[in-house]
């Protein structure tokens, strides 16, 4: 599948501070790519390089196969962007801003505008000065969703939205994917990323530390297992790949490396099992593991 966004060995320094160090990842056509990482990891910096408003120190970044700095005009005709912190001109109305952005994008006004304003419950006649944070963000969202872009870049787009609006947004992202559009979504709301994204990249301290589909990533971390038996499970601790065993009567809870699940099942089958539950790690587990910077899974 063709890559819409392609980043190779991207490095960005601010003075002697290295914000991005040899970042590599790609967003494929038609997929929703989740971009997660702790505060200050470099997500916004990466996105701003993609937008051609910061200049990469080293490395290469392309969108639609074009260089993000030198061909930014061509690229911007086909992308839409929503930042997490939207500031608008205090004395223009939301409606005016939406029209202005459409004009700057060189697009004609569509009748969708009314539908979207309704969906997001946005009053376009109010001055931006009087909008709440969430409402300012909605102006940018509506404007982005109205555009006929091929790639949507969202940097924490729901940080100010209420749960209802968040759901509306998630529906819209799914619709975009169905239409074959690509999405780069940076977010701290991991459940959102889990629900929406086909693939995820995790960045920490300016370095991509994990990249792949959720399935692939899960493989790298431990499953939570609950096992209930009629007798004691002697030697469970010694089985390879088993960690953090805790016991409550004959109910055992522990974690298993994904690759060693087989051994655990073989071991357990020697006993009479009453209950066996295995939960794949959530994105949060994955994230926490990396966030903490250790291999231990945090309870």
């Amino acid at each position: 599948m063709e890559n819409v966004v392609d980043i190779k060995r991207l490095t960005k320094r601010f003075g002697d501070f290295t914000a991005l160090n040899q970042v590599d990842f790609s967003v494929k056509k038609g997929e929703v790519f989740g971009f997660i990482g702790p505060n200050g990891a470099g997500k916004s910096t990466t996105i701003r390089i993609l937008l051609g408003i910061l200049k990469a120190t080293e490395g290469q970044a392309t969108i639609f196969g074009k260089d993000v700095w030198s061909d930014s005009m061509e690229i911007h005709k086909r992308i839409a962007y929503v930042p997490g912190d939207v500031n608008l001109w205090p004395n223009l109305t939301g409606g005016e801003v939406i029209d202005l952005f459409a004009k700057l994008r060189g697009e004609r006004q569509t009748k969708q505008r009314e539908d979207l304003l309704q969906r997001y419950k946005l009053d376009p006649t109010k001055k931006c000065r009087t909008y709440s944070k969430g409402n300012r963000q909605k102006v940018a969202l509506v404007s982005a969703l109205l555009s006929e872009a091929d790639l949507y870049i969202f940097d924490e787009p729901t940080s100010g939205l209420d749960p209802l609006m968040e759901q509306t947004f998630q529906e819209d992202v799914r619709n975009l994917r169905e239409e074959g559009k690509s999405v780069l979504l940076s977010s701290h709301i991991l459940s959102e990323v889990e629900k929406l994204c086909d693939r995820v990249g995790i960045i920490r301290d300016g370095t991509i530390i994990e990249q792949g589909s959720l399935e692939e990533l899960r493989h790298l971390t431990r499953h939570h297992v609950l096992l209930e038996t009629t007798s004691n499970l002697d030697g469970l601790d010694d089985v390879e790949g088993v960690h953090d065993v805790s016991r409550d009567g004959n109910t055992y809870r522990f974690q298993v490396n994904a690759e060693q699940m087989d051994q655990v099942i073989k071991f357990a089958s020697q006993y009479s099992i009453q209950k066996f539950e295995s939960a794949p790690p959530t994105l949060e587990d994955l994230f926490m593991r990396h966030y903490e910077g250790t291999d231990e899974v945090v309870e």
Binding site: I53, M73, A80, Y81, L88, L104
Partner: peptide, 9 residues
């Protein structure tokens, strides 16, 4: 930033 994300020079 919002403006520059659009196809504006």
């Amino acid at each position: 930033e919002l403006i520059r994300a659009l196809p504006v020079g």
